[in-house]
Design a protein around this nucleic acid. Structure first.
Lengths: 330, 330
DNA sequence: CGACCCGGGTTACACGTGTAAGTTTGGTGG
DNA sequence: CCACCAAACTTACACGTGTAACCCGGGTCG
C-alpha cells in the first residue's frame, strides 16, 4: 500500500482554479440571497467545481451551521417487513427532493445509548419509531432537532398511522358480513405489542359500538399445531371470525383451521393486516387491511419539513390510507 | 417560540468544571496511549463529563480526524424483506461492539448522486449492496474509505453469500430425492435479477454436474392464475420438481399447482429460498434453503473492521451458512 | 552537583465551511 | 469635484475536536 491517500478537494481548491476567494465560492454554491455575484465569476466557479468534482464536507458544514441535512430514522427492534421497506424507500425519495438525506438506524438489542446517537450525528430531524421518554424528546427539541414521533401511542399527537383504525376496519368488515362473535389472534412476539395493543383496542371499540360481545383474544404462534389449538378454542367459544394481528398470524390461523379439519371462511372467517405479497397466494386468498405505505412515507416527509420550519405537522389523512382488500378468507 | 436553543455542551465546558485544559479532557476521554494522566484528574474529568451529559460532536471529530465512525450500508432499490432486516440488526450490533455506527441508506429510484452521499458523509466504511463502477470503488478506496462489496458478482472478491451456492443446494436436494427433470421459477421483478441469475446458474451447474437436462426456466408472477399456467407448461415438459427464486415465488407455484388440480409434492415438488416466517404455514409446509443471516451480519462486520485496518477481508464460510430446511413440499 | 529524563500537563494549530463585516471599484446626483 | 451608494468581492472569525510540540517540577544517575 503506497497510501497516496488523495486529499479531499476543498472549496479552497475550487477558489484557486476559479481565481476568486473562498468566500465567493461559498456564496456561489449556496447562492446566498444577500450576496450579488456577477454572471461571469458565477460560471467560472461553477465549472471549476464541476471539473474538480468538488462536493462539500458534510462534517465541516454541520460543524459550522450546527445542523446537518441528515434525517435520522430510528427503528425499533422488531422485525421489519417489506411494508416498512417500501415506506422507507418512499420517504427517502421525498426527503431527497427537499435536499435532505434519509439515514436509517436499525435497532439492536444491547444498545444502551440511543441518546448518544442523535447527539453525535446532530441530525436535522429525527423520525422516532421507538418509544422515547418525554424528557429525551424535550432535550432533542431544545437542541434544535425536529422530532417526528411515528410510534403509535394512544395519547398525544403522533404522525403514525393510528393502529386503532386498522383494528376497527378489520372488525367492521367482519361485522358487516354478519359475524357477531369475533376473535383476535395476538402475535407471539413481545416486541410488537406497541402495534398489537392499539389494533386490538380498535377491534374492541368496534364491537362495543355495535353492542357485540368482547372479542376472544388468543395468542397464535407461527406454528400449525399451536394454531390448531387456538382454532379449536375459538370454535368452542362460538367465535365465527377472527381478526389477526397481521398477515403472518392470519396465515397461521389458516393453517390452524386446515389442521383442525375445518374450512375458511365457512367455519371461521379470517382477516389480516399488511397485504404481504403472499397473502393472495394463500388458500383461500387472504382478506386483509392494507395501509398505503407510499402515502405514509410522503406524509412523514411533509411532517419533517413542516416541523423543521417551525410549523405544526400536517394531519395524516388516515381514513383514506387504510383500506380493506377483500379476498376469499372473509 | 422563545428559542433559548440550549447550547451544546462541549469539551471546553467539561474542562472548565474539571479544572483542567481542554486537551486533557480529550486525552482522558479517548484515553490516548502516548499520554499519561493521573488517576485523580482522570476521575475528575470523567464525572464532570458524566454530570454535564457531554457527548462529543461527531461533526467536529470527523472534520478533525478526516474519518467518521459511521459505516454506511447502501441498499439497492429492491424490496427488503425480513431476512435483510435481521441481517442489518445483527450487523448493527456487531459494529456497535467495535465502536462503529451502522447507518443504512435505502435506495430510491430517481437518486442520481450516490457518489455525493459517501463524499458528504465521509464514512469509515461502505457496505455496497448496489453495483458500483470500478472507478467509483477506486475513488472511495483512495479517499480512505474501506469498501466491502456485498453484491453477488460472479467475478472478483465479494463478501456476499455466493448465490450460486444457494441454487446448487436447491437443485442437489431435489436431485437427491430422485428428480431428474427440474424447472426454475424466475421472479417477475427486474430489480432482483442480480440475485436471480446467479441462483439459476447454480441450479444449472448442479444439473450439468449430474448430467441431467437443463432446467426449464419460467417466469412466475405472484398470481395464482399465472402460476397455474406455468405449472401446466412444466407438466407438459415433463418437469417433476422446481427450484423457486425465493419463498414467495415458491408459494406462488404452490398456489399454481393447487389451481391446476394437482398436488405437491406428488405431481410437482417445490423448494424455495429464505425460510420466511410463513413458509412453514403453507400447505404443504415449504421446503426451503435458508442462509444464516446472523452469521452473515457478523461476517460483514468482521470484514469491515478487517478492511479498515488494512487487512484482507476474511473468507465467508458459506457452506456452513447455507442450509436446506426440509419440510413437506420437496 | 549538573545533566537528563519522565510523568503530567498546557498551548497552539489544523480540519473545511458559512457568514458578518470590511474594502475596492465604477457610477451618479448635487 | 466631492459625497455617496450599490455591486462585487475579500478578509477574518467561529464552529468543536485531536494531537504535535512545548513546558515544568521532581527524581535519578554519573
Amino acid at each position: 500500500m503506497a497510501e497516496p491517500t488523495t486529499k479531499r478537494v476543498t472549496s479552497a481548491d475550487v477558489a484557486r482554479v476559479a481565481g476568486v476567494s473562498r468566500a465567493t465560492v461559498s456564496y456561489v454554491l449556496n447562492d446566498t440571497p444577500r450576496q450579488t455575484i456577477s454572471a461571469g465569476t458565477r460560471t467560472r466557479v461553477l465549472d471549476a467545481a464541476a471539473r474538480l468534482g468538488y462536493s462539500p464536507s458534510a462534517a465541516a458544514r454541520t460543524l459550522r451551521t450546527g445542523r446537518s441535512d441528515v434525517v435520522l430514522c430510528l427503528l425499533p427492534d422488531w422485525p421489519i417487513g417489506p411494508e416498512v421497506g417500501s415506506m422507507l424507500s418512499q420517504l427517502s425519495s421525498a426527503l431527497t427532493r427537499h435536499g435532505l438525506t434519509l439515514v436509517v438506524h436499525p435497532g439492536n438489542r444491547q444498545e444502551r445509548p440511543m441518546t448518544e446517537l442523535w447527539k453525535a450525528i446532530t441530525p436535522a430531524a429525527v423520525i422516532a419509531y421507538t418509544e422515547f421518554s418525554d424528557a429525551e424528546i424535550a432535550a432533542m427539541r431544545s437542541a434544535g432537532v425536529a422530532v417526528v414521533e411515528a410510534v403509535p401511542r394512544r395519547r398525544g399527537r403522533s404522525s403514525a398511522v393510528p393502529q386503532e383504525l386498522v383494528g376497527r376496519r378489520q372488525a367492521e368488515h367482519l361485522i358487516r358480513a354478519g359475524h357477531t362473535h369475533l376473535g383476535y389472534a395476538y402475535p407471539d412476539d413481545q416486541r410488537v405489542r406497541f402495534f398489537a395493543e392499539p389494533r386490538l383496542a380498535g377491534v374492541r371499540a368496534a364491537c362495543v359500538a355495535q353492542r357485540l360481545p368482547t372479542p376472544v383474544g388468543l395468542t397464535v404462534p407461527l406454528d400449525p399445531a399451536a394454531a390448531s389449538d387456538a382454532v379449536r378454542r375459538w370454535q368452542a367459544a362460538g367465535v365465527t371470525a377472527v381478526c389477526a394481528y397481521n398477515d403472518e398470524v392470519a396465515l397461521a390461523v389458516l393453517a390452524g383451521v386446515r389442521g383442525a379439519g375445518l374450512s375458511v371462511p365457512a367455519d371461521l372467517a379470517v382477516i389480516g393486516v399488511d397485504d404481504i405479497p403472499t397473502a393472495r397466494l394463500a388458500d383461500p386468498p387472504l382478506t386483509t387491511v392494507t395501509t398505503d405505505q407510499a402515502a405514509v412515507g410522503a406524509h412523514l416527509a411533509a411532517a419533517v419539513v413542516a416541523v423543521m420550519s417551525g410549523r405544526a405537522a400536517p394531519e395524516l389523512p388516515a381514513p383514506d390510507i387504510v383500506r380493506v382488500v377483500t379476498r376469499g378468507s372473509a
